[in-house]
Amino acid sequence: MEKTHPYSSAEAIAVELQGIVRMFGGRTVIDGISLTIPRGELFGLLGPSGSGKTTLIKLMTGIDRPDAGSVSMLGEPMPQLKMLQVFGYMAQSDALYNELTGKQNLEFFGALFGLTGQLLKNRIHAAASLVDLTDHLNKQTAAYSGGMKRRLSLAIALLHEPRLLVLDEPTVGIDPVLRQSIWKELSALSRQGITIIVTTHVMDEAEKCDRLGLIRDGKLIAADTPEAIMQKAGCSTIEEAFIALGSGGGGEK
């Protein structure tokens, strides 16, 4: 969307977290996490429910503000309003207006990102065909199945061609065939240079990521390629590695 020039060194980093801490009512949810995600990486955040994945994502995107530490995205200090234009965000809940049709939902969020006219039409068409919803766009969202809602939600996140895509458990409630096609799409987007940060607790999905961050009790217990993590833990699967590293590293406070 901006002029294409070779990325400066700062811009080669998509997201950088330095010692961030977030507390809710005296409880430490994120406990001193530092993490650097380079551009174009497909980064997976893996961790049990309640480990702080969603909070970490909200801190990365500037929706929430850390109590300590600093966050920067594409070289810009966060939180910053203009950066909201740069990334696409898909939350755990589908967050759709059920009274509207799929198309009306897309039109609404497209307009919020400043898309108008033919460009908006083209983007809606592109995003809808990506998630295989073109035939259902004129249906009221309330009549969508769970999987269709999830796909529409993903289409909305892709609408404004974000340079960074942040997806909070994108494949929950989606059947295996579609799950595979979504992951294929994510890999393709990642190859185009789009940075993707995705949370999951499905282990076979985790293996598809370039790099994994394992989170437990608000601490980052490992951040490496799936192979390296398995090697380090001396296990043959991510699942075993996660359990091994989790019990050894981050104990309860």
Partner: peptide, 14 residues
Amino acid sequence: TSGTLERLLATPIK
């Protein structure tokens, strides 16, 4: 409660 506010606030809307 439906999460749309969160999504709304993840767009550049003021």
